[in-house]
Structures are given as C-alpha cells and as structure tokens.
Amino acid sequence: MSQQPINIQRLSQPVQMPDEIATFSPKVEAEIDRHLAKYPVMRSAILPLMFIVQRERGYLDPPGVSYLAKRLNLRITDIWEVATFYSMLHLKPIGKYHIQVCKTLSCKLLGSDKITQLCVKKLGIKVGEMTADGRFSLSEVECLGSCGTAPMFQINFDYHENLTAEKVDQILESLA
C-alpha cells in the first residue's frame, strides 16, 4: 500500500509545539505578582501584565505572548484577541521612542498637522513607520486628553504639550 500510516509515535507529541517562553527577573516577577494580587480573577491582570512584558521586551513578542498565556492560564488566542483590540499594545516591533501625535479635533485646530509634518521631515519616515535603526516610530493617535494644551504628542508615556516647531526640534534632538 502506498499510504501507510505514518509513525504513530509522533502523535504523543503536542499538536502545538511550545514556543520559547520569556523569563523575567525576580524584581519583575514580584511586580507581576503585585498586579495579580489586585484581582479576584487572574485574567483581569492581562492589560497591566501586557504593559510589563512590552516594557521589558520592547513589544509583545512570541515568547512574551507565551509567557502571558502561561502565567494567566489562558489560551494563546485569548492573549491575541485582547492585544489586538487595544491600540497601545504591539504585536510587532516598535521604535524605542514611539512618537504619538494627537490628531483629534482640538489639536487639529491648533496645528497638529504641522507637528506631524515636522516629525516626518525630521525622522525621515512616514506616519506608521519605524526608523531603520529602530529608535523612533511615528503614529498619529486619537485624543490624548491634552486638548487645553494643544498641540501635543506623547513619546512613550511622556506628554509633551503646547508644542511649537522649536520645541519639537529640541525634543527630537535630545532623543536622537
């Protein structure tokens, strides 16, 4: 017979090969434990933990995702569905400095377009791209609650408000 059953032994192996699983320092593990302790249901800690993994590993890379699934006792799809819903979580590499220019109405009224253009020129990338050296990513984002101090951008978690051309120059200069 040409179609002999293939080696049945292989079936005892897992259908999905386990990915490499990220590991963290005891300090980070302790931080994770502190978050887990806040909730009666482990899954609730998914967002705080994702931020930690993202901070430690740059983005939610496959070992990081496997770690989350294992740590929270969830399926890998659970991690995926949540991570892709929220705009601050990244399953793809992101620049060391993520420049997020607010483009919503109040900022727009006060010239957010120009801020974006400045960044585009300065960094030599388009919106949504990352510089070749992986230092900067540029995004346009929706309202960041800084409308009274428009225009503004956020670099990683830092707010930079009441932006002017000079200020943008200065800030980017200081990070370059």
């Binding site: 179609q3 059953p5 293939i6 049945i8 292989r10 079936l11 005892s12 192996q13 897992p14 259908v15 999905q16 090969m17």
Partner: peptide, 26 residues
C-alpha cells in the same frame, strides 16, 4: 493535546491526506 485520539490514523482516516498532516502535528 486536543486531537490525540481524533487524529490517529485508522484504516479510514488514513485515506484522508489532511489527517496525515494533523497526525504529524499540523
């Protein structure tokens, strides 16, 4: 693992090429 029995190749499922892929870990 999910499928450890279902994906076993029997006389009948052996005739389905896709089952071979599954039996080999998909």
């Amino acid at each position: 693992q999910v499928g450890h029995e279902l994906f076993k190749l029997g006389t009948l499922t052996d005739k389905v090429p896709q089952f071979h892929l599954l039996a080999a870990g998909n």
